[in-house]
Amino acid sequence: MRHIIAVLLENEAGALSRVAGLFSARGYNIESLTVAPTDDPTLSRMTLVTTGNDEIVEQIKKQLNKLIDTVKLLDLSEGPHIEREMMMVKVRAEREDREELKRLTDIFRAKIIDVTDTSYVIELTGASRKLDAFIDTLPGGAIIEVVRSGPTGIARGEKGLVL
C-alpha cells in the first residue's frame, strides 16, 4: 500500500542524506521525497511516499524516528489528509494543437505559464493521480519535458505536525 509520510527534521547538513541512506541501506521503496525549510528555519519538513505492507511501513516509520535528526513524524495516510503535487509540462504546441492544449489546460484547471511559437509550459497542481491523468490525456508525442515536485501533504483539521 502507498503511504505518504511527513517528517519534521532538524535543518542540519546531512539530515537529508541520513534519510536517503536509510532507505537504500534497508532496501525500502521510495517513490518520491521532497524537502524544504519550514517557517521555523531550524526545521525542515520532508514528505516521502513509499510503498510496502503494514510491517514494512511500520519498520520504516520506526527507523525514521530512530534517526537523531528526526523531530517528529506523521503517516498522513492514516487519517484524512490533503495531498498536492506540482507539475510543469513542456509541450509541443503548433497550429491547430494550440487550441486543443488550451482547452485541456482549462478542463484540468491548469495554467499556461510560458508561450512560444511552438510550445507551451503548462503548470498543474493537484493530487498525483490528477497529474497522471493529465499526462495521459495529452495528445501522443506532444510532451517535450515533464517535471514534478513529488507529493507534499497536510492532515485535515486543526491539529498540525509541529513541535
Binding site: 510491517e55 511500520e58 519498520q59 520506526k62 527507523q63 524516528n65 530512530k66
Partner: peptide, 11 residues
C-alpha cells in the same frame, strides 16, 4: 529499549 527492534524480524 529500541522500538525498531520490535517486530522487525518476528512479529
Amino acid at each position: 529499549v529500541d522500538p525498531s527492534s520490535i517486530s522487525k524480524n518476528v512479529k
